[in-house]
């Protein structure tokens, strides 16, 4: 039977061919990211990086715990004041521990004419850019939270700040590491990236935020049940856990 029209008579056949297409077909679609598999990001080998890898999460957790009461009492102002602190810690983390995008994990990523500098691309600019990019993602996260049932007309600052914290924690390191490389981001957004500290942190933060919604409806009448404390707790705990597990031997380099 000849192929006639992709959407009419032959659509069944198209489907059939799709279904029949052997898995080990040699020719995959060229723009597929599988062509150039994404490599997991190693933490820089320097001693300071290895120390900061453990120290910064501990610092983050400590700050979160110290400010927890104030967060429950007054979420908006606490989130506002702690945001710069989180930014600084994350920037320091990126600066000390993470390889900047384009710094090259292998020689093949270098363009021939490029002069090999000590720090690769400008690290400070990269940090600033990544921060701006991840902050620009915040409104989208805000909308996503609304879609899951967060208040739309009230608590705008609460949700926005929660989204900002999520963005700085989980998205910023990814921007720093991957830049705006579309193939990498496709893998990350499709949750097909290999586990490392940055991707593990993202997965942990997202799962944590999801689970953080669980205690909200309970009728325990506790102050900390109010929006967005539990979700924020989930984000922080999830991020730190995910980052640790993602960077550990347990999961490093593995995929879903």
């Amino acid at each position: 039977m000849p192929l006639i029209d992709p959407v009419t008579m032959s659509s069944a056949i198209t489907k059939t061919t799709k279904a029949q297409m052997p898995v080990n077909s040699p020719k995959e679609t060229p723009e597929s990211s599988q062509l150039q598999p994404l490599h997991p990001t190693h933490i820089l080998p320097s001693p300071s990086a290895q120390t900061a890898k453990h120290a910064l999460p501990a610092l983050q957790l400590a700050i979160f715990l110290i400010r927890f009461d104030s967060l429950v009492q007054n979420p908006v102002s606490t989130l506002w004041t702690s945001l710069p602190l989180v930014i600084v810690i994350q920037a320091a983390y990126a600066y000390v521990c993470l390889p900047v995008a384009g710094s090259g994990r292998g020689a093949r990523k270098h363009r021939p004419g490029e002069k090999k500098k000590e720090g690769g691309p400008n690290v400070y600019a990269a940090i600033l850019l990544s921060l701006l990019l991840s902050l620009s993602i915040t409104p989208f996260l805000h909308v996503a939270m609304m879609l899951f049932g967060a208040p739309v007309l009230t608590h705008l600052q609460h949700t926005l700040l929660c989204a900002a914290h999520l963005s700085i924690l989980a998205i910023f390191p990814l921007f720093y590491v991957h830049g705006v490389d579309s193939a990498s981001w496709l893998a990350v957004a499709g949750f097909r990236a290999p586990f490392d500290e940055t991707f593990g942190g993202l997965v942990g933060a997202v799962v944590g935020a999801w689970l953080g919604a669980v205690p909200i409806p309970l009728d325990w009448d506790r102050e900390w049940q109010k929006w967005p404390v539990t979700v924020l707790c989930g984000v922080y705990i999830g991020y730190l856990l995910g980052k640790t597990i993602g960077g550990s031997q347990l999961a490093f380099g593995k995929k879903f």
């Binding site: 995959e28 996503a144 879609l147 899951f148 499709g190 949750f191 999801w210």
Partner: peptide
């Protein structure tokens, strides 16, 4: 919450489509 979870998960899953 659950139906939204499905929608978001399927959006992510859809990124696999060639």
């Amino acid at each position: 919450f659950f139906t939204s979870t499905f929608g978001v998960a399927s959006a992510v899953y859809s990124l696999k489509i060639e």
